[in-house]
Each structure stands twice: as structure tokens, then as C-alpha cells.
Design a binder for these strands. Structure first.
Length: 718
DNA sequence: ACACGTCGAACAATGTGTAT
DNA sequence: ATACACATTGTTCGACGTGT
């Protein structure tokens, strides 16, 4: 297999080169385990959340998701583990972003593994891989619903014809069990946990490997994966800020060192609460903001001076209690500045940071005492502060040490790349928020105008660089999700690249804007994905509305009545409901979504006062609570409907590709006698894959789901 | 449940003066 | 020429509301 991997690696790097990209070979991750394994685990793509980023193996327990996978239905000598894409990447979006021939190169290699491996069961993690195998790779599978305790799940039969070395007389090569990505379980829903546990139990039973009961349901994986990982991942994958400490930028996986830096200890100990016994004092104060540049200018000289005062005690320092108070105070507020949101709980973490930051200056950290490393860090920071320009915002910003002060930027206006910010500033009041810099954008759209540069990494939040913005502690949390539903400017050719004229939906010809304009002209209009594209409306101020006593913030609709349009809030709600789906599925949904009307509806009555509104609201709440008590079955039904809706939404193209197609198979009965289907219950097998190119059209195979309004909705959309 | 309308406030985007 | 700091103003937000 080494030889095959080596060949693949050469081919992969060359394919990138043919696309004009130079990539590092040592970020390719090897397949782990033997081809004779009983079970194969098929994951998505390796990330940088690891202690072994280079020349790595897939079986890398310093990566939390992989650790979770390896914790259940996985026996070291009987399990094969590989990723669908073998290239380590900061974002696991290779399936969307890599050139198609690169993706195919990975898939061809993995397919040779799948062709050669003996495992009767393959567990596939995550919807992205599932969709890819079903749609783009076009594999043909048959669906096999289970029964009894397992009647809410099904397994998938992988047809022999999917393999180039197909053997005559065999209908199926193996069983595939599609399960959710482990990262999903940092925010578990009970029903999802139960389902995942069942799926893995079935996979393990068929394969003949051990598994752990209620592994996901009882969060038993937490004995393997550190507790703080939850907040970090939440932030990284879901953009939710849980604690100030693990805010914003900590999502950048390349910089974050998981607590499994102590993996040996953690695993042996199996108790996350005392992972680093003796060093719990190291945990940073959660509530305190980092030092601003201004504060550091004052405090650093004092901190540096303590080194000589305490010189002969330095080697004895082991935890925070041994430090001079001011050093402890300094350290506790470096969570963002030095450590960039990483949780630092002990000397090992300090050493890792020291090594990472100190690669360009100072001695390597191995043989240094804790105190020497800490003073090394203090001095690094002092040198940085000295070089910084004096700014009137110094009390509101802080800087990080290289390499964490380099941020790739794109133009806020046109989203084209800008030169990177090599001295990134961060907001003290808003943890982890990058402070925008304005610079010239030389793209065709912006033509050298001054534009805001925002981080290219969309997981890094940012804030406008003015005093009022930087002083405000809470942001309104601007929604960016709607952007997922609009076209890239470079996909807007022909008519879509032309300006769009719009006018107030109420005033039409009488529309009045500032500067004697009667039309709102949008030079670079935003269009939705899917066909036909819809113009995304704006709501500028209409002076005519104002003069006639209306608020003047009505929607503006295209003057050309043939241009369909939609408003942004609608896009947000679509993204909320269908955000988990593949982009092309979303495009289909958007394509058939109703356009917004071109005429105003009947004016509403007078608004009640705010006080009255609040009183009404509390009344409604009470009434709701009462009615819940009186009629709990209604609430239960509603909840079921909600779950059904989310099932349908989540099931995406996978479920909706189902069509009834009876067929026969004996592989299952051979390998899994315990799962033998009762004869009285005639199978309703379904075949999936390639059955439908229009995913949401067919939901006939979902007869086991309760009839709900959501189903009506699906039909309307289709 | 959905499709909007309305509101006050926060935000985005850019103009302009000034320092380097 | 460039970046910064501040000022200004249009745009967009979430919350809350009504009508269908």
C-alpha cells in the first residue's frame, strides 16, 4: 500500500501543478490499517486540528473527530481508516473547492483501496461524503431498511458493479453504513445520538468488532476528546461564540493545539476533569479582556523587571502560585494576545506556544524551564510592542505575535483578494474580532478605491475600526448566511452583469431619492443561485414616501417587470432551513422559490404602542403555557412535525433519491444472520443513486415519515 | 405559517482633513 | 502617495407588528 500511496501522492501534486497550484506533499495523509481489516471507516478530510500535521496518518488520535471515530466500532488491528480526501486542509471544503481533477485523483486512489480491502462493512461519516458518493461518483446502492429495535434506520448495499474488479455471481460487495459526522455530536440532539449509536452497533455487529453501547448518547467519547474542544469546534464549524475565551479566531485550526497534547495522560486517565492534575491554576480568567497596547506599554517593563529580582528561584516554578503576582496577572490575560484563544492549562501548552512563536527568534524550548519560557514570551511581546506605531486607538486594540498577526484579506465590497494584513489588530472589547483596515482595492469592480479589507477566513469575525465601533462590547451579529444563496460575481455574466434599476414598491414612477434621483441604480446587482436567478432587493430611503407620511423604507423592486426579485430576509430563512444541503440542491430550491411581489399589499392598521405590545406578548405567553398544559398532545404533535421537517431537510438528496425498486439480495443474510428479516414483513427495498437528478422531486420513498405540513411544502417546492 | 410593513438603532461605506 | 482618524450619511439589522 505504501507504494500505491507514493504513486498517488506524486500524481496528486502533479495534478495541482497542472492547475497552476503548488502544494505540499507532506500534507497528504496516509490510509491507516490493514486491507484485511474487518471494518473500514471512511471519513471526510483531515484538518489542522492535530499535533501531527505533517506526513500524517489518518488514525491520528490527536484530532478530536478521528479520536471519536477510533473510540467506537474500531479495533486497532481489525480496522481500516481513511479519508475521502487525503489532503490536510484548514477548511474541509475540498469537495467544493478543489479542482475536479484533483478530487477525482483522490477518489480514484480511495477506490483502489475500497476495491482491495476485505472489510464487509464500511462506515461513511458525514453528509458531504455521502452526497458525493451518491451523486457525483454515481455509485449504485440498494437500501435495506431494518426492523424491530432498528426499524428507524437502514443500511446500504454496495453493488458489485460499482467495482472495476467486479466478480461474476456476486450482487453486492459490502454493506455501507452512512452515519453522521462526529463533529455533529458536540451539539447533540437525543434522537441523533440514538440513531448514530444504532447505526454503529449494526455496523460493528455485522463486521464482528466490539462497540460501545450508548457511546454517543451518553457522550462516552468525552473520555477521549477534551472538554474544551466543544466550544472551539462550535465556533469553528458553527460560528457561535460560546465563551469569550474561545472566541472568534480560535476557530482557526492551524493555530490551535488541542488538549490531547497530553493525549497519553488523558487516555490513560480517562477522566477529563483531572487531565492535567496539579496545573489547574493555569486556566485563564474567563471574564477579563486582553491587555490593550496601551496597557501593555505600561505593564510590560514592570513584568520584565521581575526576572532579575527573582532570578534564583526561577527553576523551581511549577505553577501559577510560584510566580510573582504580576507575572501571573500578565499570563492570565494573554489568552488572546499570545495564545490566540487556545486553552493553556499547563507547561506543555506553554512550551508548544513558545516553540511555535519562537521559531524565528530565541532558543528552542525543549531544555528550558517553565520560567525561562515565560520570560521568553514576555520579552518577545515587549519587543513587538516597542516597534508598534502609536495610535489613538491603542486602548482598544491589541496585537498578536507572529505568525498570528498575519491575516489574509479580501475586499468587503467585491470579495476579491487584497494584500494580506501583516500587522493585524484585534479588538479588546470584542474578543477575537479582527479590526478592519481600509486599503485600495484594484479589482475591476472597485477600480482602486479605498475599501475595507476583511479576513479571508470567514470564521474570523471583524469589526469596523472606529472608536464607537471598537468601544461597543456587543455586536449585532450580522448575518452572513444569506451570502451562501447568492452567485459569485464572476458567475454573473451577460444580463446578470448589467446594472439593475429599481423603484419604491409603493411610489413607482414617483419615487424620490436623495440627489434628485427617481430610480435606484445598482451597478453590481446581487443575484441568487439557481435558475432563473432572482435579483436581491435593497431598501434605500424613499423621500416621496416620507413626504407622504410613510416611513420610506419600503422594498425597492426592479423597474423592469420581467426581472424576478427576492428580499434578503427570505434568503436568510431559506439558508436556515436548507443550509446543510449541497449548493446545487439549494440552487434548485431557490430556483423554484416564489419571487416577491411587485405590488405593495394593503397597508396595515396603526401600530399599537410598545408598552401595549409587550403587555400583549406576555399575555400570549401565558395563554400559550396554559394551552400547552391543557392540550399537551398538540405540543407533542408539533414537535413531531418539527422533527419530521428537519428530517426531510437533513435527509436531502439522499432520501429524496429513493424510488421503490424491488430487488433481491442474499449477502445480508449470509453475513448478518441476526438481522434476518421476518418473512411476514415483505421487503420494500429501495434503490438509490442515479435514480433522480432532481433531488427534491421524489419523496415517495419516505412513506415511513409522518404526514406533515412540511411534506406539503416539499411538494410545493418541487 | 407565511409575507410582508414599521421602527429605532447599529452598521457599512465613503468623504475629508491631517500626519507621515 | 498612503494610511489613519474622524465625520457623515445611506443601508440593513432584529424585533415586533398585522393581515392572509
Amino acid at each position: 500500500m505504501d507504494n500505491a500511496f507514493s504513486k498517488f501522492a506524486n500524481l496528486e501534486v502533479n495534478t495541482w501543478a497542472a492547475n497552476g497550484d503548488s502544494v505540499s506533499r507532506d500534507l497528504l495523509v496516509r490510509v491507516s490499517g490493514s486491507l484485511c481489516s474487518r471494518i473500514a471507516h471512511h471519513a471526510h478530510q483531515p484538518s489542522f486540528t492535530t499535533l501531527r500535521p505533517h506526513n500524517g496518518e489518518t488514525a491520528d488520535e490527536t484530532n478530536p473527530c478521528i479520536a471519536m471515530i477510533m473510540g467506537n466500532a474500531f479495533e486497532k488491528n481489525h480496522s481500516l481508516l481513511y479519508d475521502h480526501l487525503l489532503r490536510r486542509d484548514e477548511k474541509s471544503e475540498g469537495l467544493q473547492n478543489y479542482p475536479e481533477d484533483v478530487v477525482k485523483c483522490h477518489e480514484a486512489f480511495i477506490q483502489t483501496v475500497r476495491e482491495s480491502m476485505e472489510a464487509k462493512v464500511e462506515v461513511v461519516y458525514g453528509a458531504a461524503v455521502r452526497e458525493r458518493m451518491l451523486q457525483k461518483q454515481g455509485y449504485k446502492f440498494d437500501l435495506f431498511p431494518l426492523w424491530g429495535d432498528y426499524d428507524d434506520i437502514y443500511i446500504t448495499l454496495d453493488r458489485e458493479s460499482n467495482y472495476s474488479n467486479a466478480q461474476q455471481g456476486h450482487r453486492y460487495r459490502r454493506i455501507i453504513v452512512f452515519v453522521a459526522h462526529p463533529q455533529r455530536f458536540f451539539y447533540p440532539k437525543p434522537e441523533e445520538c440514538a440513531r448514530q449509536d444504532k447505526l454503529l452497533a449494526v455496523a460493528a455487529k455485522i463486521a464482528g468488532v466490539n462497540f460501545i453501547e450508548r457511546y454517543y448518547n451518553n457522550q462516552k467519547w468525552r473520555t477521549i476528546v477534551p472538554f474544551n474542544f466543544s466550544s472551539v469546534v462550535k465556533n469553528k464549524f458553527y460560528g457561535i461564540l460560546e465563551q469569550p475565551q474561545s472566541d472568534g479566531d480560535s476557530g482557526n485550526a492551524s493555530g490551535w493545539v488541542p488538549m490531547t497534547s497530553m493525549s497519553k495522560l488523558t487516555l490513560a486517565d480517562a477522566s477529563t476533569s483531572q487531565v492535567i492534575g496539579g496545573y489547574k491554576d493555569f486556566v485563564f480568567d474567563d471574564g477579563k479582556p486582553p491587555f490593550s497596547v496601551q496597557e501593555l506599554r505600561k505593564i510590560l517593563p514592570v513584568v520584565v523587571a521581575t526576572e532579575t529580582e527573582h532570578n534564583y528561584h526561577l527553576h523551581k516554578w511549577e505553577n501559577l502560585a510560584d510566580f510573582p503576582e504580576i507575572v501571573g496577572a500578565w499570563l492570565r490575560r494573554q489568552g488572546q494576545t499570545l495564545f490566540k484563544g487556545r486553552l493553556i492549562k499547563g507547561p506543555v501548552d506553554i512550551m508548544l506556544v513558545y516553540r511555535q512563536l519562537g521559531t524565528m527568534e530565541g532558543p528552542p524550548g525543549e531544555n528550558l524551564s517553565l520560567a525561562e519560557m515565560i520570560y521568553g514570551l514576555i520579552k518577545m511581546q515587549a519587543r513587538m510592542i516597542e516597534k508598534l506605531p502609536i495610535s489613538s486607538l491603542d486602548d482598544l486594540i491589541y496585537y498578536r505575535l507572529r505568525p498570528f498577526d498575519v491575516i489574509g484579506a479580501i475586499c468587503y465590497n467585491c470579495r476579491q483578494p487584497m494584500s494580506q494584513d501583516t500587522e493585524a489588530r484585534w479588538a479588546v472589547m470584542r474578543l477575537g474580532h479582527y479590526v478592519i483596515r481600509r486599503r485600495r482595492c484594484n479589482s475591476g469592480i472597485c477600480q482602486g478605491k479605498c475599501r475595507a479589507g476583511i479576513p479571508r477566513d470567514s470564521s474570523i469575525p471583524f469589526v469596523w475600526g472606529s472608536r464607537p465601533d471598537l468601544s461597543a462590547q456587543i455586536s449585532r451579529r450580522i448575518r452572513e448566511d444569506w451570502r451562501e444563496t447568492i452567485r459569485d460575481p464572476k458567475d454573473c455574466e451577460g444580463k446578470l452583469s448589467q446594472p439593475v434599476e429599481s423603484w419604491c414598491i409603493i411610489c413607482k414612477e414617483n419615487t424620490q431619492l436623495l440627489g434628485d434621483r427617481t430610480r435606484y441604480l445598482e451597478e453590481v446587482p446581487r443575484w441568487t443561485i439557481g435558475g432563473p436567478p432572482k435579483y436581491v432587493e435593497r431598501r434605500p430611503m424613499c423621500l416621496n414616501c416620507q413626504s407622504e407620511g410613510r416611513p420610506g423604507t419600503a422594498r425597492f423592486v426592479p423597474v423592469d417587470a420581467t426581472i424576478p426579485s427576492i428580499y434578503k430576509k427570505k434568503l436568510t430563512s431559506i439558508e436556515k432551513t436548507f443550509g446543510g444541503l449541497e449548493k446545487d440542491v439549494k440552487a434548485e430550491i431557490l430556483g423554484v422559490e416564489r419571487t416577491s411581489s411587485k405590488n405593495p399589499r394593503a397597508p396595515a392598521g396603526p401600530r399599537p404602542s410598545r408598552a401595549q405590545a409587550l403587555a400583549n406578548k406576555s399575555k400570549t405567553l401565558e395563554a400559550n403555557a396554559l394551552s400547552m398544559l391543557q392540550n399537551s398532545s398538540t405540543a407533542v404533535e408539533e414537535e413531531q412535525n418539527r422533527i419530521a421537517l428537519s428530517n426531510i431537510a437533513n435527509a436531502s438528496a439522499f432520501d429524496s433519491c429513493l424510488t421503490i425498486s424491488p430487488c433481491h439480495g442474499n449477502l445480508v443474510n449470509e453475513v448478518a444472520p441476526t438481522l434476518k428479516r421476518p418473512l411476514t414483513n415483505m421487503p420494500h427495498w429501495s434503490s438509490i443513486g442515479g435514480a433522480s437528478k432532481r433531488p427534491l422531486e421524489s419523496t415517495s420513498g419516505l412513506s415511513f415519515l409522518p404526514e406533515t405540513k412540511s411534506k406539503v411544502k416539499q411538494q410545493r417546492i418541487a
